[in-house]
């Protein structure tokens, strides 16, 4: 009888572990230049891009990933969402943006040692930071970032952590009892896959858009700052964050995560950029037509005569 009671007790404890504790989710996010809307002012007279004119934004598909994470948090009580980003100091904006939309905390991985990283060196650095965070059930990221469009960092982080990966996710259907059920978007169709937890999931742009900032959270986290940001501010703000620890955004340098220098930055990047060419359009001799009936009728007649159409 006694052993039965103990058995039931253990069983309940196990169930509580799955149901009460919720999921610990890490969302990988990147700050990117907004390359989607390269407006007129962003193009210089010589036809090249004026990078300074492009605003820095939260990578769009990382927002899709954040939304999927927040939905899991809504569904499984006790879950937490942590935003991890690597980049320069100003990338702390990404963490604040995550907090405004419902994330619980964030880490900024920032160091000159990471500069010049290709996707593999980036994945290595991120995987080291994740190892340091240690406890997690699920890692999520956007499928790809709009500045490189490579879609490589998610799978490479998974490989570095020796975790299974599920890419091109459109919806997380379930994440419970150590398993995750994911709907994936393929070229010509959808598939549903089941995988174990923990794992890495990358989210496609066709997934649900991210919820907007919440006014309450905006007020709460408006002054959330990294140590470097606080150092350049007045004493009042530093006092504020001692009373309210949630205003501290963790900032990690290369010394805070266990890394091997040879896998970092330029040294750790197998790919090198040999050449960069700004795209300048070669003018081709074109016939300029007006929108008059006469011009358009002549054009259509010509296209029919030379059998281009019809």
């Amino acid at each position: 009888m006694r052993s039965f009671v103990i058995f039931v007790f253990l069983k309940i404890k196990l169930i509580l572990k799955f149901y009460k504790m919720g999921l610990k989710i890490i969302v990988l996010a990147k700050q990117v230049p907004d390359t989607r809307n390269v407006g007129k002012d962003a193009m210089k007279a010589d036809g090249t891009v004026n990078r300074a004119a492009l605003p820095a934004i939260f990578n769009p598909e990382d927002l899709n990933a954040l939304e999927q994470a927040l939905r899991l948090k809504d569904k499984y009580k006790g879950s937490t969402v942590t935003v991890l980003t690597m980049g320069p100091g100003r990338a702390a904006d990404i963490i604040r943006e995550g907090l405004f939309r419902g994330a619980d905390d964030g880490y900024l991985l920032t160091d000159r040692a990471f500069a010049g990283s290709d996707t593999l060196a980036t994945s290595y650095a991120i995987s080291c930071a994740i190892r340091k965070i240690k406890s997690f059930d699920l890692i999520m990221a956007g499928r790809q970032a709009i500045d490189g469009d490579t879609a490589q960092v998610g799978p490479q982080v998974a490989e570095k952590l020796n975790l299974p990966q599920i890419t091109y996710a459109e919806e997380i259907l379930k994440a419970e009892k150590g398993k995750i059920l994911v709907k994936r978007r393929l070229e010509r169709g959808v598939e549903t896959v089941e995988g174990p937890l923990p794992c890495v999931v990358t989210v496609n742009g066709s997934a649900a858009p991210c919820r907007p900032r919440a006014a309450k959270l905006l007020m709460k986290y408006k002054h959330a700052k990294t140590m470097s940001e606080k150092q350049s501010q007045s004493e009042d703000y530093i006092d504020m964050s001692t009373d309210r620890p949630y205003l501290n955004i963790a900032e990690w340098s290369v010394n805070d995560v266990e890394t091997d220098d040879k896998w970092l930055g330029l040294t750790g990047s197998p790919t090198k950029v040999k050449k960069i060419e700004n795209v300048v359009f070669q003018a081709k001799e074109s016939k300029v037509l007006s929108d008059s009936d006469k011009d358009i009728e002549e054009l259509m007649r010509e296209l029919i005569l030379n059998h281009t159409i019809g």
Binding site: A151, Q152, P155, Q165, T167, R184, L186, P270
Partner: peptide
């Protein structure tokens, strides 16, 4: 979707470069 799922996994394991 297959090549962009498989390629990075292989390149990471073999520590070789991959360009998408």
């Amino acid at each position: 979707t297959m090549g962009r799922d498989l390629g990075p996994r292989v390149s990471s394991a073999l520590v070789s470069g991959l360009t998408a």
